[in-house]
Design a protein around this nucleic acid. Sequence first.
DNA 1: AATTACGTTCCATATAATAGAACTACCCGG
DNA 2: CCGGGTAGTTCTATTATATGGAACGTAATT
Lengths: 264, 264
Amino acid sequence: MSAAKESASEARDTGTLGKLMVLLDRVTHADEPMRFTDILAVANQPRGTVHRQLSHLVEEGLLEIDTDGRYSPGLRLLDLASRSWARNEFRLIAEPHLKALQDLTGETVHLGVLRGTSIIYLDKFEGQQPVRMYSQIGNASPVYCTGVGKAALSILPRERVKALVADLAFHRFTANTHTAESLLAEIEEIRKQGHAFDREEHEVGIRCIAAPIWSENLSLVGGVSVTGPAYRLTVERLSEWAAAIQESAERIMEAMRIGLGPRR
Amino acid sequence: MSAAKESASEARDTGTLGKLMVLLDRVTHADEPMRFTDILAVANQPRGTVHRQLSHLVEEGLLEIDTDGRYSPGLRLLDLASRSWARNEFRLIAEPHLKALQDLTGETVHLGVLRGTSIIYLDKFEGQQPVRMYSQIGNASPVYCTGVGKAALSILPRERVKALVADLAFHRFTANTHTAESLLAEIEEIRKQGHAFDREEHEVGIRCIAAPIWSENLSLVGGVSVTGPAYRLTVERLSEWAAAIQESAERIMEAMRIGLGPRR
DNA sequence: AATTACGTTCCATATAATAGAACTACCCGG
DNA sequence: CCGGGTAGTTCTATTATATGGAACGTAATT
């Protein structure tokens, strides 16, 4: 084994696949196509290794390489994901309820689910203009600064929240973004209320209200939210929808019990 | 090496990743969650091997396993794909032109790209109701029964078309679906016309007109299409848009030369 | 033309995947 | 309550694959 590696805290190692996925993540999460050298620099691994790994990813269509030798996410990912999305049971069950909530509020409705320390948005209903599909869907956002994220945390047992928070790196997106302490405090509040707000904690000018959704055994934890521009949506205004959104969450959970309980 | 494998024509073997991707494809392309035994049956590989491979895919979030031990596509795929989509240069460049075409025709406009023997839909603009996002996007459809597919083939050199057609398994979706011979014949026609029709060849009741889009070195081959219900859109009616759609394709190609040529 | 940066290929070695079997848990019928 | 099948998991020597260091091309730069 080579030396100079023990300092890194990235203890991820599912073998070959794990290493490849780390690389794939790096390239897909970059803002623009990366050249070989750029990737090599952040991968701290030998040139030959990185080169072969990239070649394999390209061969499988997970990455693509343009004529300038720059790597971008591959289209194969789209095909795989479209199945993942179309078949997702949680999303299918929630769909009509999200639509109803959109009709009621006239604002954007999101469905999200907790994965690790992120909220992944599964669906979105926008009111006005033709939706730019995919827009938000599939995006992973930090738990600590999204309504859905905080709502989701509020129904987890306290030890699990603590453990999860310990894993978080709190990035200060806005002046209102939580720290570990303030987050834990607010979660207690949310537990009592049954709903969570996002008071411009992720993005200035954006507020939301969210309610948690969970399965009995907590194998699925997420939430619904109603989101909109801060100039139009004060916290008071959002509060008026608290009952509706919590009811909507309840109905989705009810539908899950029926839909997922007995085989199909 | 074990015997009883040479009959299969699946000569895909990029090493470890390749094998895992075959498995991942199997599960994501199924219509419903698969149990371990189901996967084992189609994978013809030893139990231990399949089990470990699935475990690795689950660990990486590419697959998910529910409480009944059934495997489904994982949400990690969504996150990866959303980046792939959002950053796709071809899609970004084409976007305004697709919108314009939608405004002009009032019908659904698709953008697709050739990958192997499939067309992958990259974007979609629908007129009327709020779009169900992801709907079609990311889906891979056979070249031989889609307007975009046939348009794309029409600009490839004849040998390449021949080779590609030889790889195809023609599934008869409707009474109008092409065979190898009729497809090759129509491609010649499309070469002259500059646009292709789909005369209910994939789905009864759906017709479309498409124009090809390609980069100089053919590293990118695809097309735009206008699609709609057959009762409203006769081939004559569609023909009226032939000039517009070809012009739209031209403009997209022009934009690509500018946008992709000089770095950025 | 010389120099440097960048990307690719090679090959002995180390590492991870493989395959077969043994093991466990569960379900169903007698 | 027991036996026998079915479904899924774990174990381990063997084999295949990935690794990494260095050597090799091949542009770009001056």
